[in-house]
Computed example of a mutant assay.
Amino acid sequence: MKLIYENSLCGLDVLSDWIKEGNIAIEESSDGVILSNLDDEKLGDYAHWTIWIPDIFPKNVQIEWDFKPLREPGLCMVFFAAKGRNGESIFSSKLAKRSGYYPEYHSGDIDAYHISYFRHKYESERRFRTCNLRKSYGFHFVTQGADPLPPIEDVRGVYHLKVVKMEQNISFFIDDLKILEWYDDGLEFGAALTDGYIGFRQMAPMKAQYSHLKIWDLDSER
């Protein structure tokens, strides 16, 4: 495996070239960048946002970052293997403009896998916490695992998150604990996704700190 992208996420300018969809509040921190929303939560599902790394990544990747929830309720999500439904860039002018509204991502112009890993937005999610993996286009729920992340008052330090996508196998870990695993057979929910873009999403009024992002090409040697 070869490290192909690294970002400490320390400083206000570390996201300057990332593609922002929705209104994001960015705060500088010596321990990483702190992200929340600028829009009033009264906008409901239109107050949320998504942010993308502007590079396309290979089909077999490992994505790692440190995460610390700072304010809830809210929800955090990672997208990967994202491309336009005809294989084009998700930033193509041919696609409808996105603003952070969730249906634009699961039932719009793009295909992607996405894992929601801090699901503390709604009462039902806080009562029984899980991490969910979905495949889009189509909002297909494919698997889930128990979420070990605690409520804000019990957070101690940062949590190390890792997504591994190797061929049609997808795994997700928190602090090296395997949370979920799924094999995409390429049949039930359409062809397995390959290369694509990586992005992060938050639901208002969530506030969280991100740091030490690393992305590895699992096909390449060091």
Rank of each mutant, 00 (worst) to 15 (best):
A191V: 08
L70C: 09
L161K: 02
L213A: 15
Y105T: 00
E181K: 14
I34K: 01
S36D: 01
K207R: 08
S92L: 13
I4L: 12
D175P: 02
V61Y: 06
L218P: 02
I51Y: 13
D184V: 00
S220P: 01
Q168T: 12
D219F: 05
A81N: 06
D66L: 06
K162D: 12
E28F: 03
T130E: 15
Q202S: 12
Y122P: 02
Q62D: 10
V155I: 15
E221C: 06
D31F: 01
G87E: 11
L38W: 03
F173P: 00
E188Q: 09
D111A: 13
Q144G: 12
R119N: 15
D55G: 06
I152W: 02
H106V: 12
D39R: 09
G199Y: 05
L149Y: 03
G108Y: 01
P69A: 06
M166P: 02
G84Q: 05
P103F: 03
H106P: 03
G44D: 14
F80S: 06
Y122E: 14
K2I: 14
G22T: 00
S211C: 04
G84M: 04
A96Y: 12
D45M: 00
F57Q: 05
I56C: 13
S89N: 09
F57S: 03
D40S: 12
I26Q: 07
R85A: 07
K2N: 15
P151V: 12
D147H: 00
F67Q: 02
N169C: 10
L218Q: 04
A82G: 03
D109Q: 00
I4F: 11
S93I: 14
L213G: 07
G108H: 00
E28M: 00
E64F: 08
F57M: 07
Y183G: 07
W49N: 06
K59Y: 05
K214D: 11
Y46C: 10
F91R: 09
Y122C: 08
S93E: 15
E188C: 08
M203A: 09
A96T: 10
R85N: 12
I26A: 03
E167T: 11
I110C: 03
P148L: 05
P69Y: 00
F79R: 07
